[in-house]
Design a binder for these strands. Structure first.
Lengths: 194, 194
DNA sequence: GATAGATAGTACCGATCGTTCTCAACTTGG
DNA sequence: CCAAGTTGAGAACGATCGGTACTATCTATC
């Protein structure tokens, strides 16, 4: 059949629907383990529409990851703004990820997962994963500078290690408790950083 | 053709050769991206021999990961024994992984990578990854108890977060410098743990 | 030297993959 | 109301995948 009866024709909404469904299935089952037909089923979209919008599976993966990293950055920027200046803003980042770990079906960071699946290749996933890490480093360095840390750059890099380590282990062990553990580590590191 | 001319017939050595080659290719390109024919080529073994020894690709993957985790544990146990008792033994673990990060073609922890590729599935890779994390937790807890830390269990879990975070980032960024960074974090955490 | 086991090489099978194509049915805009 | 654009459903294609079967030829053992 054709277009669903009675529904509006909105290419932008269709594209967004595919992106959302693809992100969900890629995240849950892995990128390599997900076929285009799985996306078709999850998105309720046809192959034609998917390939018209994204060109290839590789293009869809890149679009999903790009969308994801932008959303994550926006979430963190908003949460940081909402917290009082100083060390609290750094802890707000870890409060946000601690909440994230408790979500049903939490499977870790999409960018790190994609880069891991693609290890060896020098494509978009690896690049986006590196950009994602760089975002965290710059965010932490900015917050640490504002708060008056002795060596913002070094401490920022340390916090990224803790963040990604906790995220990975929380996903592998399916243990939301890593959020609290990460917070304790961060408090110790911050105590030494001022 | 048959068996290579002039070579000794040693089933154990053949099995070990396949395991070594499979570990190398799986690590370099990823498990899903590696086909049985890639293993055939890398190991110089026939499909018949591979399937006679491991039953299936899944069986081969499990054998590779099991072999890997046992080797890693042995390396750490030896390195720890060689270090003087106390905090130095904990730092010896991180000195070992720092060296590991500098190896050409370093691609991160095979168990975490496999579990990430297999996310969603409850198979051998996830189980072996969890066992691998448990090994590190027990190792650190033992060393921290010996050294007289206040809360060995909590600190041990923190060290695993640092270890896996540094390993992941070192692999994604292809940056061996994470070894030194991890060491600094560990020293700070140890200062607070006694 | 005969027999049994191990192995490489290769052809092959069914399933699945990413991708392209066709067609019918719907909406949108003039 | 009609032409153009959009979409869903699915057939079809070539490639590749995991896995099996077969054969030839080597080694190991007695």
């Amino acid at each position: 059949m054709p277009v669903k009866a009675g529904e509006r024709l909105d290419p932008e909404a269709t594209k967004a629907r595919i992106l959302k469904a693809a992100a969900e299935v890629f995240g849950r089952r892995g990128i390599h383990a997900t076929g285009i037909n799985d996306i078709v089923e999850a998105a309720g979209a046809s192959k034609l529409t998917i390939y018209k919008n994204f060109g290839s599976k590789e293009g869809l993966v890149e679009a999903v990851l790009t969308d994801r990293t932008h959303r994550v950055r926006a979430w963190h920027n908003v949460a940081v703004e909402a917290a009082p200046p100083g060390r609290d803003r750094i802890l707000a980042v870890f409060d946000l990820v601690a909440e994230w770990y408790t979500e049903a079906g939490f499977r870790g960071c999409a960018m790190m997962n994609a880069a891991t699946e693609d290890r060896g290749a020098d494509g978009a996933p690896r690049r986006l994963a590196q950009d994602h890490l760089a975002f965290y480093r710059e965010l932490f360095e900015r917050l640490l500078t504002e708060a008056g840390a002795h060596d913002p750059r070094t401490t920022a890099r340390q916090l990224v290690v803790v963040l990604e380590g906790a995220t990975l282990i929380s996903a592998v062990d399916q243990d939301p408790g890593l959020g609290a553990e990460a917070r304790v580590i961060v408090e110790t590191l911050l105590d030494a950083a001022f």
